[in-house]
Structure formats: C-alpha cells, structure tokens
Simulated assay, not measured.
Amino acid sequence: MDRPKALVPLRYVAIGGRGPEDVVVDRRGRVLTGVEDGRILALDGLADPARSRVEVIAETGGRPLGLEVLPDGDLLVCDAHRGLVRIHLEDGTVRVLADSAAGEPLRFCSNVVALSDGTLYFTVSSRRHPFEQWIGDIVEHTGTGRLLRLAPGADAPEVLLDGLQFANGLAPAQDESFLVVAETGARRLSRYWLTGPRSGRAEPFLEDLPGMPDNLWREGPEGPIWVALAGPHVPALDLLHRAAPPVRRAAARLAVRAPYRPAAMAGVLAVDDDGRIRRHLVRHRSGFRMSTSACVAGGRLVLGSVWEHGIAVCELPDGTG
C-alpha cells in the first residue's frame, strides 16, 4: 500500500445535534444523516457556506445509525434501539421492518444496503453489548456480529453469517455478486458471495487495515467503495484480543465505565472491487475526530462522526468522484 495522502478539510458544518454517524446522498444531492436524539436531517448547499442549511425530515424515535436511500425515495434506517425501519420521507411515516432475528431482539442494528431485486442486507454489530457500550464489544472482542438478509415479502430476517467481529458497514459489488462487510473489531473487510459457485461463503477481502473500518458507501455503480476509518490501529488492543476471555471481559467492564475521547485523527480509504486500496487519506492532529462515515456530494468528500456535533467537508482528491 502506498503512503497515505493528506486529508484536506475545507469546512466544518454544525448541524444542531450530536453524532451524525452515517452520511449518504439522496436523489436531490442532499446529504442525509441521523443524530442521537432520533432526528433524520437533510443537509443542503454544502459547497457554499453561505447557503448551507439543515432541515429535519423525520424522526425514528430511537438512535439512527446506518442509512440507505431507496430508488423510490424512501429511507432505510438501522436504528440501534428499534431495529431496521423504513421511512417515507414525504410524510415522515416510520415503519419497522424487523426488530428481531432468530428469536432475539435486534439490539444493535448497524448498517443496511438494498439490492436491485429488493433484498435487504443488514448488520448487527454486537449481540452482547448495546450501542451505548460499543467500546465494550471492541475491547472484549466478542465476535457476536451478524449479517442478515430480509427477502422481499419476508416476515423475518435470515441470519447469513454469525461470529463477526463488530459487523458494521456494507457495500455491494458493482455487479451485486458479493457484499463487502466491515469488521471494525478485526480491522478487516470481508466478502460474502451472493452468486456463483461460492455463493453463501465468506472470505477475507482486505485485511490488516491501517485503522478501524466503520461505515461503507459505494460511489455509484462504477465508483469506489469509501471506507471510513473510525480510529487508528492500536497495537495494545491487538495484544488484549489474544488474551483469555475472562481478561477481555474484565477489561471491557472497565472500558465502558472509563471516560472516552477518540484519537485526534480522521481517515478514509477508497477501495475497488478487487480489494485494492486506491486512496488512503488521513489527517493526524485532526480537530474532527472519529470519522465513522464518508460520502461524495457536490464534488466534495463529506465525513460523518458518531462523536461530533457536525460534519466535515473535505477536498476530493483527483482520480475519484
């Protein structure tokens, strides 16, 4: 992998709420995000600070995380408290599509994608720790993340993969032959085959990442997959993950009680369908911390963060977009 390039920030846009964990682009070119009080926000005019505006377009009644805009304009939301929901943005109606899987409540629904046949795939980050204690799962290394599928017309989702290390972002291949799944706790991307002779199998796609991958966003059918890096590689955490389970559980109990402040860095990768890193952008000593999502809007790279009270608008390097 080549040396990383500088991530160049252009401006910070306050949004009147904390924790815009995921950012996506709708059909009108607006950036959509969800904040910790349950509101879904639409951000417009980000290319011109004088014209930037924020509008509340819906409320989930929970804690929205991963988002996916559907072809008809509706919005899918992975809500950490309510499960997988669908929002009709014309009137703000919220409909729960799934709140349990395999007889268990969906306590930490994380990210979702919709394929062209209407099938929905989504992740559950942890079956042991709720969203508010996410750091406990990262420290304990529980391996209780899941990939699920909700077929058109189905009443309940099907578990496709279990044992993932903090399953997070999802993105489809250009031809929808596989899904890329971010495993934050393992610093890797995994591939789950949807078609062909390996259908139903999972394998490594890109390992030993330079940071912890969070949300994924596909930039159009022929664009790269943008991978947000929520934090740097922490060698001490690698050592802890090799410790015995009782040691990891004790460390997790301490971690969820201790004050937490993310590292002063923001980073993203752009990855192609062959698992090659095409861009690695990073900013150290960054004022914008814990970049949990990235998308491209108006010729700019937009970052979300579960930690911040706004989004970052950054320069989009040549060769992308």
Rank of each mutant, 00 (worst) to 15 (best):
R3N: 14
R11W: 07
V13A: 09
V13D: 12
G17L: 12
V23I: 06
D26E: 07
E36P: 04
D37C: 08
G38T: 03
G38D: 06
L41F: 11
L41P: 04
L43Y: 02
G45L: 03
G45P: 09
D48N: 13
A50Y: 09
A50C: 07
V54P: 04
V56A: 01
I57H: 01
E59G: 12
P64S: 07
L70T: 05
L70A: 13
L70E: 14
L75F: 06
D79H: 06
H81D: 14
R82N: 11
L84F: 02
R86C: 13
G92P: 14
T93M: 08
V94I: 03
D99F: 05
S100V: 08
F108S: 00
C109K: 07
C109R: 07
N111S: 15
N111Q: 13
S116H: 12
D117A: 07
G118R: 00
F122Q: 01
V124Y: 05
S125P: 03
S126Y: 02
P130N: 06
F131K: 07
W134D: 07
I135M: 11
D137I: 01
I138V: 15
E140V: 04
G145M: 05
P152S: 14
P152R: 00
D155E: 15
D155Q: 10
A156K: 05
L160S: 06
L161N: 02
L164V: 08
Q165H: 13
Q165W: 15
F166W: 06
N168V: 08
L170S: 00
P172N: 11
A173R: 14
Q174R: 15
D175P: 00
T184D: 05
R187V: 12
R188N: 04
S190R: 14
S190N: 10
R191E: 05
R191I: 09
W193T: 07
L194M: 10
T195W: 10
T195K: 15
P197E: 15
S199T: 13
F205K: 04
L206A: 04
D208V: 11
P210E: 03
D214C: 08
N215S: 10
L216Y: 02
E219V: 13
G223W: 03
A228G: 09
P232Y: 09
P235W: 02
L240E: 00
P246V: 10
R253I: 02
R257L: 13
A258V: 06
R261E: 13
P262I: 14
A263V: 09
A266Y: 05
V268Y: 00
A270D: 04
D272V: 11
D273Q: 12
D273N: 06
D274Y: 09
G275H: 07
I277A: 10
H284W: 12
R285P: 05
S286A: 13
G287N: 07
S291G: 07
T292V: 07
L303Y: 00
V306I: 15
H309P: 08
I311E: 01
I311S: 00
A312R: 00
V313T: 01
V313N: 02
L316V: 08
G319L: 08
G319R: 14
